[in-house]
């Protein structure tokens, strides 16, 4: 398993291939379309993230001291953003997830194309993933 940092670096390098926002958008949509759908049993209100303009459901579980995420949204673009986060964070140890700064989000220039409300949605997703990790971390201690 790669470290969070290495996975972030890979995404940054992928995005360096794109000059235009249009290409980044298309790439993120592509990721969203390929994201494994979340089982219906997890698409419940308890799993909904507050603070997102679009509906986002996030499910987390642990396996061998690692935390795994699955998620879904009614927006394919948001699913693409989630796919990036899942790619980096899913399968990582809780303490790594809690402490990472996720600098790649800024480095790939995602936030600069977003209104504040949308950026807040992305921040809410990251926060929820970290909260899950924090919860699991304390459970195992």
């Amino acid at each position: 398993m790669n470290t969070i940092e290495a996975l972030e670096q890979q995404i940054v390098e992928d995005f360096e291939l794109f000059d235009e926002w249009e290409e980044k958008y298309q790439y993120i949509i592509d990721l969203g379309q390929k994201l494994k759908p979340l089982a219906a049993e997890y698409k419940i209100d308890d799993n909904k993230i507050k603070g997102c303009q679009s509906s986002v459901w996030l499910h987390a579980y642990t396996e061998a001291d690692k935390i795994f995420f699955e998620a879904d949204s009614d927006s394919t673009f948001v699913k693409g953003e989630i796919a990036l986060l899942i790619n980096v964070l899913s399968g990582q140890p809780a303490e790594e997830i809690v402490s990472t700064e996720l600098g790649f989000v800024d480095r790939i220039g995602l936030r600069q194309h977003m209104a504040q409300t949308r950026a807040n949605g992305l921040a809410a997703m990251i926060k929820q993933m970290k909260l899950y990790a924090l919860g699991f971390q304390h459970k195992t201690v």
């Binding site: 958008y25 949509i29 303009q53 679009s54 009614d74 927006s75 394919t76 673009f77 948001v78």
Partner: peptide, 9 residues
Amino acid sequence: INAFDAGMY
């Protein structure tokens, strides 16, 4: 198709 996705397109 989600309206937001299309608006972004």
